[in-house]
């Protein structure tokens, strides 16, 4: 791209905000009452993780693996890609993430569940925001409730909830499980920013928060908090 410095963020926006938000309205209408079921599944997975229940890893991997694949196909490729050709290239990343989530759940020791520390509380908050606050954001933004973004149905709450639970759990697979959700947050956050939508900062704030919490958990000793006793 020549003279790239002359381009503004909104030069890359291919569609109007109205067209974008109507995608969610159509998605919800086509899948109703599935949004209720996906939200319930997300909350159930969160409870399994919080209580470190037997099968928590499998339950989390199953729920998150399925919703990533479902959102990648039903929303990104079937709907969003019709107005944003770049999304056709991003859709496969959701399938890769689905496989990674499933793989982490099935591989013993890939993820560990411990008592919540400060980072875990932040992750829990993020997951709850994705599951319970995202659907009512249209009311605050003056949009119809019918275009609510719901976990397991729309990408942004699905991705934010995933980052939230990955902040709660531990394990060596986090390094491969986090990049795709974080990159999506940047992509979607910049898209919303180009549309002058305030909730862009939720998406752009998630990677910044994750990075900051990562430093707290894995950074230099002087910023790390003591590991809670299991």
């Amino acid at each position: 791209m020549s003279e790239w410095w002359t381009y503004r963020l909104d030069d890359f926006l291919l569609f109007s905000p109205r067209t974008y938000w109507r995608l969610f309205e159509a998605q919800n209408a086509a899948l109703w009452p599935l949004p209720l079921a996906t939200t319930a599944a997300g909350l159930a997975a969160l409870l399994l993780i919080l209580f470190r229940a037997p099968g928590a890893s499998l339950g989390m991997g199953l729920v998150f693996g399925v919703v990533w694949a479902f959102v990648g196909y039903s929303f990104l490729l079937e709907r969003y890609a019709t107005i944003n050709w770049a999304v056709a290239y991003l859709g496969p990343a959701f399938f890769i993430q689905a496989l990674l989530m499933g793989g982490a759940a099935l591989r013993a020791g890939a993820l560990a569940f411990r008592r919540l520390d400060g980072v875990g509380v932040a992750g829990l908050t993020l997951a709850l925001v994705a599951l319970l606050v995202f659907p009512v954001l249209p009311l605050a933004a003056g949009r119809p409730f019918a275009c609510a973004e719901v976990f397991g149905i729309a990408p942004d709450p699905t991705v934010i909830a995933t980052i939230g639970v990955l902040l709660i759990v531990r394990g060596g697979w986090l390094a491969v499980l986090l990049p795709i959700p974080l990159l999506w947050c940047v992509f979607s956050g910049l898209t919303l920013l180009a549309m002058d939508e305030t909730q862009a900062w939720l998406l752009l704030g998630a990677p910044a928060l994750t990075f900051g919490l990562g430093v707290v958990r894995f950074g230099p000793r002087w910023v790390r908090r003591p590991e809670p006793r299991v």
Partner: peptide, 12 residues
């Protein structure tokens, strides 16, 4: 540009 990029939305 932008205005006609409405995807499969029948109303739009």
């Amino acid at each position: 540009w932008i205005t006609f990029n409405v995807g499969d939305d029948r109303q739009l």
